[in-house]
């Protein structure tokens, strides 16, 4: 087990390097010059060149990348062009909020979807199964920014039961209803797609496992149905975990629209602001951190999977 963990960790290093290159390079592929947004449109060439020198944008790309990588490795992501504050600080503040939102959404989605998928998978083909499949299809198909807006209109504007945007204040206090209230609508909105995807994966995994021979063996040995189901769920878990991990990664990066709809001060919100202002250091830093979280999530999923299924460790 230990050597498996070590191998997986080592394999993640080149992936992380590749990710950093892509993050750095992508920003340069996008049209437009970041310096331009800082200066008035009629700024002369001399000023532009000066500013470029100031940010090191006049050096060759490879040199820029290496010096950026060196600084990033020591925790220095540079300063935001828009606010002038250190990027690391901006990311740290917003990332916590996004992890809170995405993490909670995935946990909620997993609990709901695993239960739904198990019910459907045990009775594949029944009307219950068809209901769950229907719910899953709807969950996956509804665009989440649209759902967010609808929820805001219904619960915040019409019923005035829940807040429409923002957090209750800096920091998060899980014992305060005021803080929790702000999470309800964004979490529902964000968990809708993962509920659909995880429910479908669980359903097919459970129904496949329930048709395997060993389930007959368990019954043939007089085990009660709940014990049979426990064996089946343990077998169905690895693929579901994999999908859940992917969903967490997607939510971490993919909550831009939802965070914007709810003005949730997370990394997606930060990212969307940085895109609008062409704040390159913030863009690079945020994308890199989100991508690394994606890589780490996958690594964590692999490790959890292999602890559930001993056959994976050999591969």
């Amino acid at each position: 087990m230990f050597s498996y963990v070590l191998r997986r960790l080592l394999a993640a290093v080149p992936i992380a390097l590749g990710v950093s290159m892509v993050c750095f390079g992508l920003v340069y592929l996008a049209p437009g010059d970041p310096v331009q947004t800082l200066l008035p449109p009629d700024a002369d060439a001399e000023t532009v060149a000066q500013l470029k020198r100031l940010y090191g944008l006049d050096r060759p790309l490879a040199v820029q990348y290496l010096s950026w990588l060196g600084r990033v490795l020591s925790g220095d992501f540079g300063r935001s062009i828009a606010t002038g504050r250190p990027v690391a600080e901006e990311i740290a503040r917003s990332l916590g909020n996004t992890v809170l939102l995405a993490g909670l959404s995935v946990v909620v989605a997993f609990s709901v979807a695993f239960a739904l998928g198990t019910i459907a998978g045990r009775r594949a083909g029944s009307w219950l199964d068809r209901c769950v499949t229907g719910v899953a299809v709807v969950g996956v198909s509804v665009p989440n920014y649209w759902l967010g807006i609808v929820l805001v209109i219904v619960f915040a504007v019409e019923m005035m039961a829940l807040p429409a945007s923002g957090m209750a204040g800096d920091g998060f206090d899980p014992t305060s209803w005021e803080h929790l209230k702000h999470l309800v609508l964004p979490v529902i909105t964000l968990s809708m797609i993962p509920v659909g995807i995880i429910a479908r994966t669980t359903r097919s995994a459970v129904s496949e496992v329930m048709n395997q021979e060993f389930v007959t063996t368990l019954r043939a040995n007089g085990l009660p149905e709940w014990r049979v189901l426990r064996h089946a769920l343990k077998n169905a878990l690895p693929p579901v975990l994999a999908v859940m991990g992917l969903q967490f990664g997607t939510l971490m990066g993919g909550s831009i629209l939802v965070e914007t709809v709810f003005s949730w001060p997370g990394s997606g919100f930060l990212l969307s602001k940085a895109i609008l202002t062409r704040d390159v250091p913030v863009l690079q830093g945020t994308i890199l951190v989100l991508a690394l979280i994606f890589v780490l999530t996958n690594l964590a999923v692999d490790l959890v999977q292999s602890s559930v299924d001993p056959r994976i460790r050999r591969a």
Partner: peptide, 8 residues
């Protein structure tokens, strides 16, 4: 091969 639960 298939008559035992593979993960227990």
């Amino acid at each position: 091969m298939t008559a035992f639960d593979p993960v227990v």
